[in-house]
């Protein structure tokens, strides 16, 4: 899977300019996180990747094919978009029907649909809720239901818009597993998130957006080391990183293990200086 965004600009009908010349290439299976202030253009950007929005100027290519050559419905086989608000996505009377809807319309074989329902419902933790009405699910279950709906269609590119919103520790662990599983299957996941701990634990490449532009696009270590730039984007590094920065450790750790390594290295250095 290869996504190419070339000098993309988008102006809403209200004349609000939401994207200002964004150029990015996302390729392979390494999951990418997009972070940034509210209103920075994150959702507007990903809505271009399945044609929900069409460029005002510039170009979007999915595996070399211009996004404008197909409808969003046609792109849905290849690109799945999990909405920010689950209620925007759910409309049928059971989880099972929601899961079966997309594949049926794509012409997937009945046996394959059955197999996928079992596999996906287990992965998203809704195996015992298949006959439940989606509106009777808890807000977290609804979110996993919308993720399941997209996974059912087996797209190569999956776009998650704020999947961590309202999730507890268990939900975060499940999301992590889903993203790893998709990666193992050779899929590309692009995720918008405000939860920097989740971002730090699951993504290597981070794109930071500000006022319609992608102002940083780099390895997570390099991105979170730019504290001043991040502040201007209303982003704060995750807690472990902040403690390391506050105590002037030389490295930028995101995990407990990396923190201890950075700490011991700094301690060693100071002892040697004495």
């Amino acid at each position: 899977m290869k996504v190419e965004i070339k000098d993309l600009s988008y102006v809403y009908p209200s004349q609000d300019c939401a994207l200002r010349g964004v150029s990015l290439v996302m390729e392979g299976t390494t999951p990418v996180a997009i972070v940034g202030q509210n209103g920075a253009g994150k959702t507007t950007l990903v809505k271009h990747l399945n044609g929900l929005l069409r460029p005002t100027s510039g170009q979007v290519l999915i595996d070399g094919v211009d996004i404008n050559t197909h409808t969003t419905a046609q792109w849905s086989r290849k690109v799945g978009y999990v909405f920010q608000n689950p209620d925007d996505q759910l409309f049928l009377e059971s989880v099972r029907k929601e899961f079966e809807f997309g594949p049926k319309h794509m012409g997937m074989r009945k046996e394959e649909i059955g197999e996928r329902v079992e596999y996906v419902s287990n992965l998203v933790g809704l195996a015992d809720q298949l006959d439940t009405h989606p509106f009777d699910l808890t807000s977290t279950q609804k979110r996993f239901c919308t993720i399941g709906i997209i996974m059912m269609m087996n797209p190569d590119l999956i776009l998650f818009d704020e999947p961590t919103c309202g999730q507890d520790a268990q939900g975060i662990r499940r999301l992590r597993k889903i993203i790893q599983e998709l990666r193992n299957q050779g899929k590309l996941c692009i995720t918008i998130s405000h939860d920097m701990r989740f971002v730090a634990e699951n993504f290597k490449r981070i794109i930071v957006m500000k006022k319609g532009e992608a102002i940083l696009d780099d390895d997570i270590e390099k991105v979170f080391a730019r504290t001043e730039t991040l502040k201007q984007c209303f982003i704060t590094p995750p807690p472990i990183t902040r403690v390391a920065q506050g105590a002037d450790l030389k490295k930028t750790p995101f995990t407990g293990k990396a923190f201890m390594e950075a700490f011991e290295e700094e301690r060693e250095r100071r002892i040697c200086q004495m």
Binding site: G36, Q37, N38, E162, C165, G166, H194, M196, K231, C233, F234, I235, T236
Partner: peptide, 8 residues
């Protein structure tokens, strides 16, 4: 839940 980290 819908706000960026500094906004929150």
């Amino acid at each position: 839940t819908q706000l960026d980290p500094l906004g929150a």
